[in-house]
């Protein structure tokens, strides 16, 4: 009996020191499974995400919103599904979308996201017209100066779109003078850019601003929702999945078309990984208490 107990204690101690390799391998398997099996979640919208959704939903058809793709490839899996979902929502509500980026890395990613949704609507049988329903302005250097510039004179800041078209001539951008004509700016960011939008667009021009951020940075921007400086926030993969699920459902109902899901699949991996993490923490603590008990003895 005593021998047995000693063995158990040793085992409990051991599980508190699982080598990194096995922890990593376990996580890899758990992350991969839902992606391979394409298990989808049916998430329910969180409060901060719903604030953005409701705001867009309340805009009158014909309004213009602006998306800023201020992220690089690393944040793409989290942020791109958010952008896609918001565009789908906007187009279905008859809201027009302008895209731009403050980071060089975001140029190609923004273009890809915008063209993808345009393609989805074409496949669904409701083609969108470039220049009327959507416009991609591309990259503009200067960061805060660009944000301020839009508040002064939009056409001066963006005289041409990504393809070199004159923004004074395109149907969508023709009447946009400054922030007064933009109902909402949503900044998809992996860094500190929402702060610049808040400081320059919101503080100086009363522009409504929302943010879509990676989960790692989410807590940074939460204080700004409480103060009303952000109309809402999409935080990480969970928010992306919430919004995506909602827009996929809307498109299925209206067009009988299902866009390819990204975040609703990704969030299953994330949830499984979170459960795996909690199990590991529990194992670590069982081992810790076993060790402490033995030491006390």
């Amino acid at each position: 009996m005593a021998n047995n107990e000693k063995k158990t204690t040793t085992f409990l101690e051991k599980i508190g020191q699982i080598p990194r390799f096995w922890i990593y391998l376990g996580l890899l398997v758990i992350l991969m499974l839902p992606l391979i099996l394409r298990i989808k979640a049916k998430p329910r919208m969180g409060m901060e995400t719903k604030m953005v959704y409701d705001f867009i939903d309340s805009l009158p058809p014909g309004s213009v919103i602006m998306l800023s793709f201020t992220y690089g490839p690393s944040a793409r899996p989290e942020l791109e599904p958010m952008a896609l979902a918001i565009m789908r929502h906007a187009y279905m509500r008859g809201i027009r979308v302008m895209g731009m980026t403050l980071s060089v890395e975001g140029t190609g990613l923004g273009l890809e996201a915008m063209t993808r949704v345009a393609k989805e609507f074409e496949e669904a049988g409701y083609p969108l017209t470039y220049g009327e329903d959507w416009v991609y302005l591309g990259y503009k250097t200067g960061w805060a100066m660009v944000i301020r510039g839009i508040g002064g004179d939009f056409h001066e800041t963006f005289p041409r779109d990504y393809y070199g078209n004159d923004t004074r001539k395109m149907a969508l951008t023709r009447d946009i003078q400054n922030y007064d004509d933009i109902a909402l700016v949503i900044d998809f960011a992996s860094g500190g850019s929402p702060g610049s939008w808040i400081t320059y667009a919101y503080q100086q021009f009363d522009q409504k601003v929302a943010a879509g951020v990676t989960a790692v940075m989410g807590a940074d921007w939460q204080p700004y929702i409480r103060t009303g400086q952000l109309v809402g926030m999409l935080n990480g993969m969970k928010a992306a999945a919430d919004y995506e699920a909602k827009t996929i459902e809307m498109m299925e109902k209206r067009f009988g078309y299902t866009p390819k899901p990204y975040a609703t699949v990704g969030i299953v991996s994330v949830t499984w990984a979170q459960i795996y993490l909690i199990i590991l923490i529990i194992i670590g603590n069982i081992s810790f208490f076993a060790l402490r008990r033995r030491r006390r003895r």
């Binding site: 699982i18 922890i23 996580l27």
Partner: peptide, 8 residues
């Protein structure tokens, strides 16, 4: 991976 290992 690092978050998992660090939390554990």
């Amino acid at each position: 991976f690092y978050v998992t290992s660090a939390a554990y």
